[in-house]
């Protein structure tokens, strides 16, 4: 009995030791592939000014960014969507207090191959394409060409926002090509004549054609004003209010210099 009591006390004492592990001058960031170029470019610029700070940035998707904040494995979790109720409850139970820092505005642009004559679609038409109601571009005034539907993978925040703002609760088409990054969507649409896809504004290149939605072209002005219907905010989540090097970095992202980088990456500065 005495032996057992000693074991119990020893284990409780071990548990009572608070975690004061020093992180040093390293800042770790993971999450949304949409926010990734902002995080990477800002990190590079920040490290030029603060050579003593080492920032590591990786993608994975918004779900991974938020899960990493909950697990305490990163300092900043990038997300192109808001945290979900389930994730927030889970985080708080784990002693994590997720704080949302809006770092940019973005529009999800609907893109087609430049060979496609289609220039504009309504939200309902986009939804009908993604639910499989329209299978050929000629059904909506385009060329006689099968529609190849490209989507983002389910752990992506871009997918979540598209699902919420365009699909409005309806299921997507079976057989849609689910790709793991915005870059992959853009390059696949660029090389597939009948393709339609969606990506963050920052990923638009001359190799694809951007469609106007509900008669509004995505632009910095229409996204910031909310006129463009598939717009959203981009976030960097921290556990509690940012401190130390994490705060320095976030302050930099939100500074005029940081927001210049946001715009240079093709996104819209935070309001």
């Amino acid at each position: 009995m005495y032996k057992k009591t000693v074991i119990i006390i020893a284990l409780l004492a071990l548990v009572a030791i608070p975690a004061f592990a020093k992180r040093g001058n390293k800042v770790t960031i993971a999450g949304s592939t949409t926010v990734l170029p902002i995080a990477q470019s800002c990190a590079e610029e920040f490290m030029n000014c603060h050579p003593d700070v080492n920032i590591s940035v990786r993608g994975g998707g918004s779900s991974v960014g938020i899960a990493s904040i909950i697990a305490g494995t990163v300092d900043i979790g990038d997300a192109s969507r808001h945290i979900k109720d389930k994730e927030l409850v889970q985080a708080r139970e784990m002693g994590i207090n997720p704080v949302e820092n809006v770092v940019a505005n973005d529009g999800i642009v609907v893109i087609v191959n430049p060979a496609n004559s289609i220039k504009a679609l309504s939200l309902d038409q986009v939804k009908d394409i993604y639910t499989g109601k329209f299978l050929n571009w000629k059904e909506i005034g385009g060329p006689n060409m099968p529609i190849v539907v490209i989507s983002r993978d389910v752990s992506s925040g871009t997918f979540e926002v598209f699902k919420e703002k365009v699909m409005q609760g309806t299921a997507g088409i079976d057989g849609a090509l689910m790709l793991a990054s915005n870059n992959a969507v853009v390059s696949t649409v660029a090389s597939t004549p009948g393709a339609i896809g969606y990506a963050g504004l920052g990923y638009v290149t001359s190799s694809i054609k951007v469609l106007s939605i509900e008669g509004v072209m995505p632009s910095k002005k229409t996204i910031q004003s909310g006129e463009y219907p598939i717009s959203r905010t981009l976030h960097m989540y921290t556990n509690g209010k940012a401190k130390g090097n994490v705060k320095l970095f976030l302050d930099f992202v939100l500074s005029p210099a940081g927001q210049k980088i946001v715009e240079a990456q093709g996104f819209v500065k935070a309001n």
Binding site: V15, P18, F20
Partner: peptide
């Protein structure tokens, strides 16, 4: 009840 502080939980 669940208490979590840093790396410790009860």
């Amino acid at each position: 009840s669940k208490l979590v502080y840093g790396h410790a939980s009860l």
